[in-house]
């Protein structure tokens, strides 16, 4: 376990020393701030609209951070050949995968904390309401989703050497699932066979990332999600993350690293 944490530490150190995402951070912060500064005239609709935009911004920023960071990890180690002195030490490839996953996941977690804290302060100071539990649930669900995404990207990065291809493909997959995921079985019914069966099948086997998007609760003040549902979602995310990491490990385990 210490070996995995050591790897995790390096991932996080690289992330804050590279400073790539500082721009994204500042941009998100400034936009949220600007949105918060709009004079609402207590118009319920505009308030919701602004909150929706801010939340979307947080989602996109955190997805970008998660995907781009993860896609780079293993290809960069191979490119700079740092993977060789590393794997020449008593560390298994499974531990490397685990350490990389944990590093990327924790890093995006920290980004989320900053984003949500900012969001809460801005909206709270305007509306004088502090639905902390709802924010916490929304952030937690988003973090779970990012775990699945990071595991998926890690898997992709073992097969596509170029981080840009992995990032692009992951983006398309994740956004597609978020947009049509919950409707796919309905869309399927309108399709001719064999499309109908294929899409229905896909609907049942794909990871339902859209379940983790809690913006309605945050934006419409729906209160909070029952604890049982959060636990179920957590388990669901854990299983998916586990499956994807297992596949990543299987792909990486026997890989000839010199080609």
């Amino acid at each position: 376990m210490n070996k995995i944490f050591a790897l995790t530490g390096v991932v996080i150190k690289e992330l804050y020393r590279r400073k790539d995402f500082y721009v994204l951070f500042v941009l998100t912060a400034v936009l949220t701030l600007a949105a918060g500064a709009v004079n609402f005239f207590h118009d319920e609709k505009i308030v919701r609209y602004v909150k929706d935009i801010c939340l979307l911004l947080i989602w996109i920023s955190s997805l970008v951070i998660a995907i781009v960071t993860t896609a780079r990890q293993i290809p960069a180690e191979r490119e700079a050949r740092t993977i060789f002195p590393l794997l020449a030490k008593p560390v298994s490839r499974g531990q490397v995968i685990a350490g990389k996953f944990l590093g990327c996941w924790l890093a995006t977690g920290m980004a989320l904390v900053v984003f949500y804290f900012f969001f809460a302060v801005i909206t709270g100071s305007k509306e004088q309401s502090w639905p902390v539990l709802t924010y916490f649930q929304a952030a937690w669900m988003q973090w779970l989703l990012l775990g699945i995404v990071i595991a998926l990207v890690l898997l992709g990065s073992i097969y596509f050497a170029a981080p840009s291809s992995t990032s692009t493909i992951s983006f398309v997959v994740v956004i597609s699932i978020l947009l049509v995921g919950s409707h796919l079985h309905v869309i399927a019914l309108q399709q001719p066979e064999p499309m109908q069966t294929v899409l229905t099948f896909v609907y049942y086997i794909m990871p339902h990332l859209e379940w983790f998007y809690l913006s309605d609760f945050v934006v419409y003040d729906f209160g909070h999600v029952p604890l049982l549902k959060i636990i179920a979602a957590t388990l669901y995310a854990a299983v998916w993350t586990g499956i994807l990491l297992l596949l990543a490990w299987l792909g990486f385990r026997r890989k000839n690293l010199t080609t």
């Binding site: 210490n2 070996k3 944490f5 050591a6 790897l7 530490g9 390096v10 150190k13 690289e14 020393r17 590279r18 700079a80 050949r81 740092t82 060789f84 002195p85 590393l86 030490k89 008593p90 560390v91």
Partner: peptide, 19 residues
């Protein structure tokens, strides 16, 4: 080989020591 460029020699060795 190139080593992790963003680490110092000391940090690199400390990382490997943990491994």
């Amino acid at each position: 080989t190139y080593y992790y460029k963003f680490l110092s020699a000391e940090e690199l060795l400390r990382f490997y020591a943990k491994i």
